[in-house]
Design a protein around this nucleic acid. Structure first.
Lengths: 122, 122
DNA sequence: TCCAATATATCGGTTCCAGATATATCCGTC
DNA sequence: GACGGATATATCTGGAACCGATATATTGGA
């Protein structure tokens, strides 16, 4: 079988282009945006985010989300790491989009144009 | 940078769908068909063909191409391994095409539709 | 009180692409 | 006739990415 989901980096960058999100929210956002077709597990997402942060494509900020009853306790509470796109990440996203379009044109040179030109008239 | 060329298997199957070819001819065919954009080196092609043959997606036949002056000699002469698509390989190709179209739709759900709907009117 | 959902993170296996290397033959040129 | 470039097949090694499993801890509802 062909690899089902390859361009995870493009997808993650594109959802972060709209607004900052934390890791788990990125997962859920991708699921809803793709109507459940694309599921990015933690084993894929977190190494990817780590790499994106290392390369300066995203910037991250910790946010301590503590419940009301835990607000006074020494426990660190639930923590969220918010990721936002840097200008470098935006450029990378545009590179991705360009590469995607080029890839589509390339493949269509072999398999013929897809059913994209037809107007969706009811 | 995004991975430039991913769907090598799809491309190889698609060129074999038109006619049987031997390995080196596949390389050249892909280069001409893609206007030089896609180059599949031997380090990619031959392991791929081996896997495709093992999985029954292509069938191979050796062809001894001997020159006139070498026709009588014990030397094996130049050999070509012709690959042709099996029915299973044709089904796989259609799977690939379907998966490609689905992948394009999926990505467009994140980055918006590409410039495909516009007519190329001069 | 228990359990599912939330939230982050790592590890190992698999697959694939890419470049380098190896071997051998054919053909045009000098 | 010798040489080199194109033809032709093949392996190896490294790197990058995806995937599933696993681990830990918190939160909130039944």
């Amino acid at each position: 079988m062909p690899r089902p989901q390859d361009p995870v980096e493009l997808v993650v960058l594109s959802v972060l282009a709209h607004e900052p999100l934390y890791g788990y929210a990125i997962t859920k956002r991708i699921e809803t945006r793709s109507s459940g077709e694309l599921a990015v597990g933690p084993g894929v997402l977190y190494p990817l985010l780590k790499r994106l942060e290392r390369d300066g494509l995203v910037a991250a900020t910790w946010d301590a989300v503590r419940s009301d009853r835990a607000a006074e306790e020494p426990s660190p509470g639930r923590r969220r790491k918010w990721y936002r796109l840097t200008p470098k990440g935006q450029r990378r996203l545009h590179q991705h989009i360009g590469a995607h379009r080029a890839r589509v044109r390339l493949i269509e040179a072999f398999i013929g144009p897809g059913p994209a030109a037809q107007e969706e008239s009811a």
